[in-house]
C-alpha cells in the first residue's frame, strides 16, 4: 500500500526468487545532504504498477529485451558481424551496468556510448539514436545481466570532476519555476506533487518501461523531461552535461540493486 507522505514497506522479489535491495543506508555523500536511506522508485508506485515488475512474464519491458536478443544475433554494418559473432553470450556482461557510467580513456562513458562506439569500431555499423527502441532495448538487455547486483559507480579519481559537475547540476534551480532536482527528489520525496508521488529520482531501474508511453524510457530522456517541467531550456540527450548528471544520480543510488527493467506508470 502506498501512503501519502512516504515510500511503502513492500518487498520486491522478482519471479518469486530474487530479492532486491530497494532500501539501504545512503552512501556517505548523501548522508552529508541529510539523507540516511536511499530508496528505489519502486516503493512510490501503486501496487498494480509494482506487481508488473515482479514477474518477467508480466513485465511489458521484456518484449523489448526479447527484441534486443534478436538484434544480438542480427548481422549489421560493413563488417558483416553480429554481437554473437564475437561474444559467446550476453551473460558475460554481468556486473558491467552496475559500475556505469565510468571514465574510459579520459571520457565519461555511458552504456549508450559504449554500444555506439563499439558498433562503429567492431561492426562498422551506424550509431543508434540515444533514446531509440533499439538502443534502449540493448541497454536494458545488458543491464538485466546485472539485475540484483548493487549499483557501485566510482566517484573518485578520474571520475571526481565529472561527479562534481553532476552534483552542481543536481542542486541548480533551473527555469522560470526555479526548481532543482533536489527541490523535488531530495526535499520532497514521499510527497505528492499534484497527482505524482515523488520518489528520490533514482536510476537503478533504467531504462524503465513507462505504461503511459508504452516503451522503454532512457535516463537522459527522463532528465530532459524533468528539467523541461521547470520551464527551463533543457539539455540534449547524450550531452556532456547529462553524462555528468547521470554519474552523480547513479552514485546517489550506490548500494541499491540494479532493477532494470523497472516498470513505471
Amino acid at each position: 500500500v502506498v501512503f501519502a507522505g512516504g515510500p511503502d514497506d513492500d518487498t520486491l522479489v522478482i519471479n518469486g526468487e530474487t530479492e532486491m535491495v530497494t532500501k539501504t543506508a545512503a552512501p556517505p555523500a548523501m548522508q552529508e545532504a541529510g539523507i540516511e536511506e536511499v530508496i528505489s522508485g519502486w516503493h512510490f508506485r501503486t501496487d498494480e504498477t509494482q506487481s508488473l515488475q515482479m514477474d518477467d512474464f508480466e513485465n511489458p519491458a521484456m518484449i523489448f529485451v526479447d527484441q534486443a536478443m534478436d538484434y544480438w544475433q542480427t548481422v549489421d554494418g560493413s563488417e558483416g558481424k553480429s554481437c554473437a559473432s564475437c561474444h559467446e553470450s550476453v551473460e558475460q556482461f554481468a556486473g558491467l551496468t552496475a559500475s556505469m557510467p565510468k571514465v574510459i580513456d579520459g571520457k565519461l562513458t555511458t552504456m549508450e556510448d559504449l554500444l555506439n562506439d563499439h558498433r562503429a569500431s567492431a561492426m562498422g555499423a551506424e550509431p543508434w539514436k540515444w533514446s531509440s527502441d533499439e538502443m534502449q532495448a540493448m541497454v536494458a538487455l545488458i543491464a538485466l545481466q546485472s539485475r540484483g547486483m548493487p549499483v557501485n559507480v566510482d566517484i573518485d579519481g578520474e571520475a571526481r570532476p565529472f561527479w562534481e559537475k553532476g552534483k552542481e547540476m543536481y542542486y541548480t534551480r533551473y527555469g522560470q519555476l526555479e526548481l532543482s532536482c533536489a527541490s523535488c527528489h531530495e526535499e520532497n520525496y514521499g510527497n505528492y506533487i499534484r497527482a505524482d508521488h515523488l520518489s528520490q529520482g533514482q536510476i537503478n531501474g533504467f531504462p524503465t518501461y513507462r505504461l503511459k508511453q508504452a516503451k522503454l524510457i532512457s535516463k537522459h530522456n527522463r532528465f530532459r523531461g524533468c528539467i523541461r517541467d521547470t520551464r527551463a531550456e533543457t539539455f540534449a540527450e547524450g550531452s556532456d552535461e547529462f553524462r555528468a548528471l547521470e554519474l552523480y544520480v547513479a552514485s546517489r543510488g550506490n548500494g541499491l540493486s540494479v532493477e532494470t527493467p523497472a516498470v513505471r506508470q
Partner: peptide, 23 residues
C-alpha cells in the same frame, strides 16, 4: 521551493514555456 509568479529575470536557463527550448 515555491515558484515566483511575478518575476521575469534572474533565472538559470529560462525556457519558452514548457517546450524545453530557450527563451
Amino acid at each position: 521551493v515555491m515558484p515566483a509568479f511575478y518575476k521575469t529575470s534572474g533565472f538559470v536557463r529560462p525556457g519558452d514555456g514548457y517546450t524545453g527550448k530557450a527563451a
